[in-house]
């Protein structure tokens, strides 16, 4: 039980996919312009991670080693398509804003990475936990980048005006702002880790 819990929590801080493993940077940089986008993207990725880890882990004995990559991709792509359809139906505005980055979850390194490194080698329950933990970690990382970017670049949070009488720094919602914010957050993360040692 404790082990299962550890699989869940490691993705949030110790092995955070964005800040520590430094995977999935493309969506982390591209859709973190607003907190709403980041949370939406995080939930979509978590959904895919959860189900792809579940299926891949249960199929791990059935799928021969040599063709595992195409099999994983079919599984992942199917769930991504499902997410895409569901989002277009029930959250059309979010789907429009995330645009191409929803289908691009297929090539998100975190999902392929977890399938290859974890789900294909572990039992179903730990794999689900791993997928959930990584998904939550990804969502949290994305949200923290987005929080800073939306606040400084737009003066808003989740679309609400927070900083009035503030001249938002346009650069923060552009690409350089994303890279700077991510860099600073990784630095802070490393600082905390080094202090702990």
């Amino acid at each position: 039980m404790i082990k299962l819990f550890k699989e869940l929590t490691k993705g949030i801080f110790k092995e955070n996919p964005v800040f520590v493993i430094v995977l999935g940077l493309c969506p982390a940089l591209a859709v973190s312009t607003s907190l709403e986008n980041a949370i939406g993207m995080g939930i979509a990725a978590t959904f895919v991670l959860f189900f792809s880890n579940l299926i891949i882990s249960s199929l791990r004995k059935f799928v021969p080693d040599k063709i595992r990559i195409p099999c994983f991709i079919v599984v992942i792509a199917s769930f991504v398509t499902i997410v895409e359809l569901l989002m277009a139906a029930f959250a059309p505005l979010l789907a429009k804003r995330l645009g191409i980055f929803v289908p691009l979850i297929v090539v998100n390194c975190i999902i392929m990475g977890r399938a290859e490194a974890f789900a294909s080698r572990n039992k179903v329950l730990p794999s689900i936990m791993d997928g959930l933990g990584m998904g939550v970690g990804f969502t949290l990382a994305l949200s923290s980048v987005a929080l800073i970017r939306e606040l400084l670049g737009n003066g808003t949070l989740l679309g609400h005006n927070i900083l009035t009488n503030f001249n938002p720094a346009g650069i923060m919602v552009l690409a350089p702002g994303a890279l700077m914010t991510l860099g600073i957050l990784i630095a802070i993360n490393n600082l905390i880790k080094n202090r702990k040692k």
Binding site: N167, A169, G170, I171, M172, L174, P176
Partner: peptide
């Protein structure tokens, strides 16, 4: 560059 991209108005 930072200022120009952030606050082009000013």
């Amino acid at each position: 560059a930072f200022l120009l991209i952030s606050w082009p108005k000013y």
